[in-house]
Design a binder for these strands. Sequence first.
DNA 1: GACCAGGCACATC
DNA 2: GATGTGCATGGT
Length: 223
Amino acid sequence: MKGKVSDIADMYNAMYDYFGHRRWWPADTPFEICVGALLTQNTSWKNVEKAIANMKKKKVLSLNGLLSIKVAVLRELIKPSGFYAQKAERLKIFCSFVYDNFKSLENMARVDTDTLRKNLLDVKGIGPETADSMLLYAFGRPVFVVDAYTRRLFSRHGFFDEKTDYDIIRMFFESKLPATAGLYGDYHAQIVETGKMFCRKKALCGECFLNRKKYFKNDSWIA
DNA sequence: GACCAGGCACATC
DNA sequence: GATGTGCATGGT
């Protein structure tokens, strides 16, 4: 696990300079963020937007709405987001979890972060990235979200191996940054923007602005 | 037509 | 514990 404190800060500054503040997560309500977090699993956000638009059009994008809707109907609404049978079930399971344990998302928001994270990870269909996306963006908790782009981008720059354990990477960032949800949220957003543009699975990194000598030198980031 | 997208659960070794 | 596979639509 390589990298100085300033490395991580410089990475963020370089991306922020390039993209500006990203104002994530795009959604009207915390519940919509939770739904989006489930739908975007291994799926492009463009396709998720279509599914969300369908749910809004039918006025079912709420806890009670999704609790009431028939699974077969829900499947059709979220079809554009892919894996629709599986995701319809996961949405139903998530809503039941919220209702059975807290009655509402507002009540759920009163639970402390560690407990809430453990609870979410026990829900079928919610893994570490989905849980942390909800914690950070829907509940405003300072939890760093690690996704495929984070692994790819930072491993390609030598910070850690691409298949390093999720929580090790999460704690790597959390230990080097002030525990602020606003910063974590924008940092993750910057990573995704950079990833989409310059860090796709097979893409070479030659075009990436992060490779400019101004930022990168002798295998480590310069201040 | 191949490859990929803001993962996760489950089977198998 | 590591590795492989199914899930599925839509954009490049």
